[in-house]
Structures are given as structure tokens and as C-alpha cells.
Amino acid sequence: MSGGEYWESTLDADRARTVRELLESATAADGVAPVSEQAVLSLSAESGARHRVAIADGVVVGYANLVAAHDEHPAMAEVAVHPEHRGRGFGSDLVGSALAAGGPGTRVWAHGDLPPAQALAARLKLSVARELWQMRRDLATSELPELVVPDGLELRTYAGPSDGAEVLRVNNAAFAWHPEQGGWTAQDIDARRSESWFDPKGLFLAVDPAAPDSVLGFHWTKIHYDENPPVGEVYVVGIDPAAQGRGLGRLLTLAGLHYLRARGLAEVLLYTEGDNLAAVHTYTRLGFTRSHVDVAYSATP
């Protein structure tokens, strides 16, 4: 390997474009994206993530994304190798580099936990540290429970940037425990609001009618137009910890599901931590079943 053997805090536009092309090739070959949305967004924004681009014979053959450890959360890495350059040790090199750069406890995501990723983890003596489940539900042929908003609550949609601060506050309070979701900034909200898929009518807010500017919880939906046919997503459901126990998670999830079905979508997906038993229970009762698993591996102490 030559060139690109160091970690960079930013990528120039040409390099970011080349990495995106690599990621698209890997997605087409594997049927699953090799890195998260957060990693893709970090290619062209100041995010705190670091990047390593592997180059062989002047060609970009691999990419690694590394987010440093923060608070009690370990460093997290994501790695992709171009399908035409696999089997030459680039993946092992990038994973090893990420583990070394991230420090003790660093975790490396294997999206879809495909057999090559399992084999690489076995060679490097890595063990499963975390599971992220993708769950799916049919919308076209199965019934949805009726949406009933209880007295003392108002359900409305996103009114514009004026709601941004409250959505951010609730998100970070609800996911304070979460290594990726809990540290959002206003820039993270703005970046997603500027995406082509964003629709303010698909961002639902639960508020107290007596204080309509104070958000109790929200459900941010998303539509994956790149899938054929398009698929809906329960993108983020966040409930203010002070409003827990009022059934807001189920209410907001249902509001989003009714909206996505009204848009003509036949299927909806979501992601949840495999060990979040309360969330898994809620989504299972709403008809979701596990479809695949993303696994975070770490070095065995």
C-alpha cells in the first residue's frame, strides 16, 4: 500500500467524492451499506470524525472512519474496501489501524455482519461488543392500530427551524446514554434538514397544549427513495425523560406509521439496540420483526 496511510480530520471535495463512489460500489456488491449515515455526512462536514483513505497504485481501495472515545463511550470505527480490491489485506490493515488509533475498547462496525466481516473478526480475535437490530414491518397488507391522541396532548408536525432547538434538546436528553445519537449538535439537525429526503410533514411532535413550544417527544420519519420500491423508516423516536411513562413512544411511532402508509409505502424499517428490551418489546407489539443485525466488534481484553 502506498499513500493515504495516515488519519485526516477533513477530506477535500475530490477525495470525499472518491470515497462516496467506493461506498456506493461496496453497497451494490454487498446489498448493505458498509458505513452509517453519520459517517457519510462526516465526509463533507466538520464532525470530529477522522478519516483514513487507503491507496494502492494511485487508486483509492479502502476507507476507514473513526470517532474518538468520549465520556464513557469507546471510540467507534467503520471500514469499507472496494469490491475489486478485496482479499489483499486492505481490510485487515484498516481495521488494525483503527483499533490502534482509537485506543483501548475501540469498536469496529460490521454492517450486516456479513461472512467476510465475521472471518476478519475471527482472524483478529475480535469479539461481539454490541448489536444494532434492523426491524421491518409490512404496511401494505397488515392493519395499523387506530391513532388516538389522549386528552392533554397535542400532536403536530415540524413548524420549521424554530422547533430545532427543542428537537435537539429532547434528542440529547433521550439518548444521553447512546454513543452516536446522544451528542447531536445544531449542525447535525441542519445537515439532516437539508437532505433531499427531509419532509417537515413527516416529523411529528408531541406537545402540551398549555406550552406548545415545549416538545415532550418527537418521531422523525424518513423515506429511502434509493430503494426500489421506496421504504419508510422510523428514523428517530425521542421522548423527554421527564415525559416518560405517558405512552408517547407508541403514540408517536403510530403517527409516523400512518403517515408513511398514507404516502403509499409498502414497508417500513427501524434500527434499535439489540439489548434495549423495552424498545424491542414496543416495536414487536407494533408488528416489527428483526430483519438483519449490525455488529460492533472489539478486541478481547
Rank of each mutant, 00 (worst) to 15 (best):
226 D>Y: 15
205 L>E: 05
177 W>Y: 14
167 V>K: 03
210 A>V: 05
252 L>Q: 09
5 E>A: 12
147 L>A: 02
5 E>T: 15
128 V>K: 06
206 A>T: 07
165 A>G: 10
275 D>H: 12
161 P>W: 04
124 L>M: 14
277 L>S: 15
202 G>Q: 09
74 P>N: 10
153 L>G: 04
155 L>M: 09
257 L>E: 02
96 G>R: 02
116 P>M: 11
121 A>S: 11
190 D>Y: 03
201 K>M: 14
133 W>Q: 02
198 F>I: 08
258 H>T: 05
17 R>W: 07
2 S>K: 11
273 E>L: 15
132 L>M: 09
241 P>C: 12
159 A>E: 13
36 S>K: 01
279 A>H: 13
220 W>P: 05
258 H>V: 01
123 R>N: 10
179 P>Y: 04
26 A>N: 00
176 A>Q: 09
140 A>L: 08
156 R>S: 07
143 E>T: 14
294 D>Q: 02
59 V>L: 13
261 R>F: 05
286 L>V: 07
106 T>F: 04
76 M>P: 00
30 D>H: 02
120 L>M: 14
60 V>A: 13
6 Y>T: 13
28 A>T: 10
147 L>W: 00
35 V>I: 03
122 A>M: 06
236 V>L: 08
112 G>Q: 06
149 V>H: 12
280 V>M: 10
100 A>V: 12
156 R>A: 05
157 T>A: 10
82 H>P: 08
36 S>W: 04
219 H>T: 04
198 F>A: 09
166 E>V: 05
190 D>V: 07
72 E>W: 11
254 L>H: 03
286 L>C: 09
48 G>D: 05
281 H>K: 12
165 A>S: 13
265 L>Y: 02
226 D>M: 11
145 P>M: 06
110 A>Q: 02
104 P>R: 06
180 E>K: 07
78 E>W: 03
122 A>H: 10
87 G>H: 11
167 V>L: 15
14 D>G: 14
118 Q>D: 08
48 G>W: 04
36 S>N: 03
188 D>R: 13
142 S>I: 12
69 A>S: 15
219 H>D: 06
253 T>R: 08
156 R>D: 10
16 A>W: 07
1 M>A: 14
77 A>W: 01
162 S>R: 15
51 H>C: 03
126 L>S: 00
293 V>C: 02
255 A>I: 08
163 D>R: 03
163 D>G: 07
245 G>N: 13
4 G>K: 12
157 T>P: 06
236 V>Q: 04
65 N>R: 09
19 V>P: 01
282 T>A: 15
289 T>F: 03
276 N>P: 13
258 H>I: 01
111 H>N: 11
203 L>S: 07
20 R>P: 00
52 R>M: 12
80 A>P: 04
180 E>Q: 15
237 V>G: 09
49 A>E: 00
36 S>Y: 03
198 F>D: 10
152 G>F: 11
196 S>Q: 11
255 A>T: 07
207 V>I: 12
143 E>P: 06
59 V>E: 13
260 L>W: 00
84 E>C: 08
142 S>Y: 01
115 P>F: 10
114 L>A: 15
254 L>T: 05
184 W>L: 04
109 W>R: 01
94 L>I: 02
156 R>K: 06
9 S>K: 15
63 Y>C: 05
145 P>D: 05
227 E>S: 15
104 P>N: 04
